[in-house]
Nucleic acid binder design. Structure first.
Lengths: 177, 177
DNA sequence: GATATTTGATATGGTCCATAACAATTATCA
DNA sequence: TGATAATTGTTATGGACCATATCAAATATC
């Protein structure tokens, strides 16, 4: 079919009525080529938060290019290292990852020999998670890259004190908003 | 096929070797039932940024439930109001939305009679964007909801000064990181 | 011991994001 | 001028991420 949804909808909009053309005339030639005004957008918490998050993730991926670790994968490795012997449900839920979606993530990390699922002897339903030796080594290198290339960038942008204040406020928003 | 990818991969992991069982034994029974330690995760910029962003968007959606506006839709309305007479490419790129993905968004807003596409007389390829009267009214109500329910929540959580400092730092990160 | 719950897993659908391609229109320039 | 390139809105499509329902195996509950 060649009739688009937009075309169907346009049947009920006043774009080609007399009023539509008048409105168009009022507006033609406004600020052609000039930069757009962000206006209240630049003070919207959600907007600036999302933009900042995208930039930070982008930078993180560049810093981690040699190790091929995403922010989510890095967080899993960090959490498993700090809490060895926990099962998938515990690690996933702590990170806000749903159990079904955590399976493929672990498949990936395990296939790269970064972590391992070990059948628990206490509860043979669950898989205990541990970092492999390679996983520990990769995580150590990842931490150094994050510290020297990623966090350092934030420090030189905001300064040490502001950087800590920013993270503290974000943590508060994340937990109490 | 019933053989999963995970099962294939598990052939090369040492879960059931002597070493595997020894590792498991070292780790069994650690902190069962206790809360997990976040460790360095709670100081990771990307982690806390993402969690905060999810919470803020969630709260935004609740505040806007009566108007059925997403953060992205709200940002489009704000930007079109501030910059009437711009075309789709200009509005979309300012918001970091790719032109193809902006089409469906506008189809939605236009079908709800919140904004209108008007064929430009200067360049008949492009569509000038304008808010409808209903769009202006809805946006006005949305702004009030955001101010009284959304931003106010942030104020009582951080205080006015910290709220402004947070947004300023996020803006800096978003633009210079 | 029958029933309910938990765990890891699969299947599946939705939303968002990114790229390629196309028709209509406009810009470029030989 | 006319052929070619670039732009605009659009469609189609695929990937990444997120959410729900469902299942078998194992465990808990009664």
């Amino acid at each position: 079919m060649t009739v688009s949804k937009a075309a169907e909808k346009s049947a009920e909009k006043p774009a080609d009525t007399a009023k539509g053309r008048k409105d168009a005339a009022e507006v033609q030639g406004q600020g052609a080529g000039e930069a757009l005004q962000l206006g209240e957008l630049s003070e919207q918490l959600g907007y600036v938060l999302k933009r900042a998050q995208l930039k930070v993730f982008e930078n993180f991926l560049r810093c981690m290019a040699s190790l091929q670790l995403t922010p989510a994968q890095f967080s899993v490795l960090l959490l498993v290292e700090k809490n060895p012997g926990r099962n998938q449900t515990e690690i996933a839920s702590t990170l806000g990852i749903l159990r079904p979606n955590f399976v493929a993530m672990l498949d990936n990390l395990e296939s790269r020999d970064l972590c391992a699922r070990i059948r628990s002897t206490n509860d043979r339903r669950s898989h205990i998670l541990v970092l492999t030796d390679k996983g520990k080594a990769v995580l150590a290198r990842a931490k150094k890259l994050v510290a020297t290339k990623h966090e350092a960038r934030l420090n030189e942008l905001l300064g040490q004190a502001n950087r800590e204040a920013l993270i503290a406020m974000l943590a508060k928003v994340a937990s109490e908003f």
